[in-house]
Design a protein around this nucleic acid. Sequence first.
DNA 1: CATGAATGAGGGTTCATTCAT
DNA 2: CATGAATGAACCCTCATTCAT
Lengths: 229, 229, 229, 229
Amino acid sequence: MAYRTPPHVQEQKDLRRRQILDAAASLFSSHGYHETSIRDVVEAAGISIGSFYFYFASKDDLFDALFAEMSEAFLAVMTDASETTRTDPAGGTAEAIARAMSLIASNRPLSRFLLLESGAGTTLFEVRRKANEQRFMTLVHDFLDEMQERNQIHVTDTASAACSLMGGLYFSILAWLSEPQGNDLPFRILHTCLYHLKSLGLTADPEAIAPRIEAVLAREPSACDCGPL
Amino acid sequence: MAYRTPPHVQEQKDLRRRQILDAAASLFSSHGYHETSIRDVVEAAGISIGSFYFYFASKDDLFDALFAEMSEAFLAVMTDASETTRTDPAGGTAEAIARAMSLIASNRPLSRFLLLESGAGTTLFEVRRKANEQRFMTLVHDFLDEMQERNQIHVTDTASAACSLMGGLYFSILAWLSEPQGNDLPFRILHTCLYHLKSLGLTADPEAIAPRIEAVLAREPSACDCGPL
Amino acid sequence: MAYRTPPHVQEQKDLRRRQILDAAASLFSSHGYHETSIRDVVEAAGISIGSFYFYFASKDDLFDALFAEMSEAFLAVMTDASETTRTDPAGGTAEAIARAMSLIASNRPLSRFLLLESGAGTTLFEVRRKANEQRFMTLVHDFLDEMQERNQIHVTDTASAACSLMGGLYFSILAWLSEPQGNDLPFRILHTCLYHLKSLGLTADPEAIAPRIEAVLAREPSACDCGPL
Amino acid sequence: MAYRTPPHVQEQKDLRRRQILDAAASLFSSHGYHETSIRDVVEAAGISIGSFYFYFASKDDLFDALFAEMSEAFLAVMTDASETTRTDPAGGTAEAIARAMSLIASNRPLSRFLLLESGAGTTLFEVRRKANEQRFMTLVHDFLDEMQERNQIHVTDTASAACSLMGGLYFSILAWLSEPQGNDLPFRILHTCLYHLKSLGLTADPEAIAPRIEAVLAREPSACDCGPL
DNA sequence: CATGAATGAGGGTTCATTCAT
DNA sequence: CATGAATGAACCCTCATTCAT
């Protein structure tokens, strides 16, 4: 008795949802969560207010969806890295760093507000953000613990190292994003890699690492397609 | 014809202003800029809304004042460090890192929202925040350039290193602030120091650095007086 | 050229309509007219929003349909009463009162919001409600006039008496509906009957009336099948 | 240090609050609670939306205030009646009925929506309304119980009688309010009185009661100052 | 100078209704 | 006929800011 939603209608819905997510990502990134109104989002997405609430239960729900997308991508990076570094600690770590930085850069529309925008932990928005920050940090921490156990790196405290690594990557990308011309990303990534590899006690030949970074960036082309802020 | 403000009246004014700044710092830190209303601030400061606007032109102006205070303190740290490292590169850098981390930690009521909150540059608020971030980064960058020129450190790119250093310190402190018990700050600082000293090519004896960190924390007692979030 | 709706299709339509009416009656009664959305109704009825608007022109139209159903039932009660009281004034009136109260009680899903909800006459909804209230009152008024003319009752003003009678019955039922346990309905009806019979100047033996009330309730089984709110 | 609110400012505030209450009472009564928006209220009161929220925390709060006013007045009527009927059962009851009806009539802007507007008990609005309805009914019930104990009235069930009395008065007034010309209020009250006095077993001389009703209406002049709906 | 009443644009969200599929 | 995605006016409420007292 009930009519099924035909496939092409579902496709339409997915498309619309994507449109909203993209519009929101762009606006949140350029104006911040608080300074972006639902009205702004729907205008950018070319839909009506009512439609927005058909696709998302609330502004917080929209945020959650954006969040989940980035989380998954980051998780994938760390999982792959965990594998690669088994046989190639320095190269694998460099690649992981490059991928993480590329991910942050490509998600500029998301990353700044997802990782940094903050007041405190009172709003639902902020509670989620914090939980995710923890999760990211834990992923990196576990990764370093694993390598330390395998005797591949040597740091005096993996927790502190994880923080420094994450923070270092993050600020590097943010700085790059703030620069007027954003074209020397490979250079930035390379030297950030070298800095942290040294701290981790991994010796690496710049000549060998550079092409691998280029390869990563080539594989994930979204990294540069938006230019700097 | 023109009345001079008598000194004791000026003192009164300064006191009131301080009250407002303190109340705002505490509220902004615990609830965030956007979630804190002027009404919240004046209630915490024990004054009226009208009075607030006598001391500050706007909410943004209040923010600016808070900002300026922290900026100056950070500038002092870097200036001192620039001096000390002339004769003692490793120790001086360690001390600078310790002081910077201590400063961030002690200004938890400010630092999180000052450095991280919000997403982009549309509001006056955000423009200032960004300008300050740049300034901090430049201070660190100049500091590293100086040491590199003096042949005291060896990194492949001082700009990237500055980012990694700043970001590393920042995330370390934030992580520490998020932890339930916040008593191992010296431990955190020590290992964050060691991580970055290694990257900078500075050899340092942990045994020698630890007491200097303790000394810094002892000198700047505000660092621990509030405990973790 | 013109298609005739085959009978079994018409039946289907009637069934669907009934489903919607029942769902709406239940929801309106438990949440009120304003707090019940079309979405709520269609979900409870197991149909789509679009379908709803095939069966009813609007929310107001749905309300009208519900209204009409109860009106007819009430009209029947008064018409029957008019007949019975010819030969048995007290017993007939008691029976009418019992039937009216039973009707209100059994239509708890409708009656409260039909007779009471809302405040004034701007919306179509309210205009109808008011018209109906008038109609009910007029029925009772005419009934009393008739008996007064027949010298069966003796009140100083039939209009005032009609109001007191209607209001009395109504509040009695509402009070009963609000009570946690709703099982003493016959008791309630009996004593409400006695109260009004006395005012009307009808002498009645409680022993004789009680079984007639029970009989009415037994005949109209819907009265108790839902229990109190 | 804190300036005190001067008395005349407080007076201004009270006046404003009154303005809002009056505007709201009028609108709620003529359009109902749900159909009256805050915007409507503030426009009628000649103030801004912001001001409204300075005087009332919410729409519900406004409703509560309106409610409280009528509750107190009703309580006073019943308390007085309890006293007067000690020595003059019939006259006192008649007077109480007259005062209650006068109160309802004079508060036509309030009473309909306060006592009747309803859906169910889900919203705060409705919860309060219901609580009050109960309270009114209890007052009347207690009043009847008291008289029954004193052997002044004789009904078979005071609870049922309380409902019939309240409902009767209520519907009588509502009917009067709905009539195009509203000038025969004393007539209405008189005959409603007689109806219920009879049920209660109180013998009363219409000639004696009529002037007392007139007296009540003269004392509470607000009863007729608004005319019918 | 201190006060707090007043403002109103703008916030997120709801929902009766329409219409292309 | 059934469907449910789309609409947008309207809802209640917040809050930075002003200004008469």
